[in-house]
Every structure is written in structure tokens, then in C-alpha cells.
Amino acid sequence: IFFRVFFPPFCTMRALVAVKRVIDYTVKVRVRPDKLGVVKDNVKHSCNPFDEIAMEQAVRMKEAKLVNEIVAVSIGGPKSVEVLRGSALAMGADKAVHVKLADDSVEVEPLAVAKILKAVAEKVQPDVVLTGKQAIDDDSCATPQMLAALLNWPQATFASAIEVDGKKMNVTRETDVGMQKLSVSFPCVLSCDLRLNEPRYAKLPEIMKAKKKPLETLDVKDLGVDITPRLKIIDVSDPPARAAGIKVGSIEELVDKLKNEAKVL
């Protein structure tokens, strides 16, 4: 602690990056016949795009010698290891923690995820937690804020620029009307927005090296977190389809239809 006070962040900071395995963003999802979820078997999965941005940010901070260790964490069934190895460790994380669930179909709500991440953060002792701003499957946009609350740490959500400035971070965040700049003290939780960076592709040698990096497996049961869902899924359905439209032949016809048929111009 003495060292940290007088020689702030330089090379003593640890970043924890949370990554989630989700259905790939290019896949058109299909609702299951029992209407209680979407079809996940034999569907391409990958790392949540926002989490790759968080990972990239951590790696850039390490390259800038602002961070000296990156720990990646993922919560999920056995296949989450693919995301930890293939994305997080291959992109530059030093080690990984896999919080193992019984199987890949188990879904954990943000509240339970935040509690699990808190338990992991207490073990890893990070100075900064980086996450994506939301997962593209449940679109909740809640986990990083909940983790920050449970740890009683400050948060900066929807970050589009992050600078380390001594013992603080200057974060530019995207709001509904433009940008907001905040100064946030360590330790803190940051959620990353799309424009923060462009994640790198892991090169083959890194992918090979990633296979040898340390990966610790924790059983969720040992963390003492109850993952029973608080919300009961009553029904999952396709959104109502729009009535078929028509093609028009000219801009005059388009304007006429909008004015006289749809009456919206």
C-alpha cells in the first residue's frame, strides 16, 4: 500500500475483464418451439462484441504500462473456456478464471452475475474492472452497474475514451445528448461502448500461447452465490411481423403514398 501511494498506477495495476459467451451477432435467432427461450444448440457462439472492446482496452493499457496484469473471467458452462482461451487470453490476458456452471444452457441473471463477479474481484483484487456495456443476448445493460454497487465502487458506463491520470481515470462516456467527461478514482468499474476502440484479431502464435496460459476453474457452488432466477420466463415469442410493404416506381409516387395513403407527410 505504501508503494502504491507514492508510485501510483505505474505497473502495479491489475485489470479484471469480464467476458461472456453469446450467440454470434451475425446469427438470426429463432424462438424455441416451447416458447421459453431461443434455439442455442448448433448455433454459432462467440465473445460478446462489447466484451472484446473491454479486453482490447485492458491490453492497450498494459501496452502503455498502465496495467501490469490482466485477469479475464467468464461465467458459464464448459464452452465458456473457448471464449476465455480464444478471445481473452489470445488477445493478451495473462490469466483466466472460469466460473463453471453445470452446462451451457444455464442462464444467469445480472444480479447473480454481479454477485459472482464480486466474489471473483475479492479474490483477484483488481484496481479496475472492465466489462462490455451490455451483452447482445439479454440486452440487459445492468451487470457492471450492479457489480459497482455491490463493491461500493464508482462506475463509469458507456465509456468511449479512457485515460489514466495518476490515481484517477478520465472517462468520456456516451450519453443521449452527446458526451460527458467524468473523473473516476480507483478502484472502479468501467463499461465499454462501441467507439472505445477496435478490438484486434488474435494471431495464430498468440492463440497457441493462450493454450498454455493459466486458467483457474471455480465451481459456482463454491462461491456461495444463489443463481436461482428471480424472474420467471412466461413466454418468448417472435416480434410481430410487419405487414408486407410495396415497391413504388418513382419518388413522386413515394411522396404521394406517404401524403395521401399513409398520411404521414
Binding site: S140, C141, A142, T143, Q145, A148, A149, L150, P229
Partner: peptide, 18 residues
Amino acid sequence: AFGKSVIPRVAAVSDCQP
């Protein structure tokens, strides 16, 4: 951006799933 930043924080402290 405001609601998304605040509600989950309150929910976590109240042990509630938003």
C-alpha cells in the same frame, strides 16, 4: 443513459433483479 446507470445500482443494493 441515466436510467440504465442508476436503476441497476439501486437494485443490486436491494438484492433485486432489475
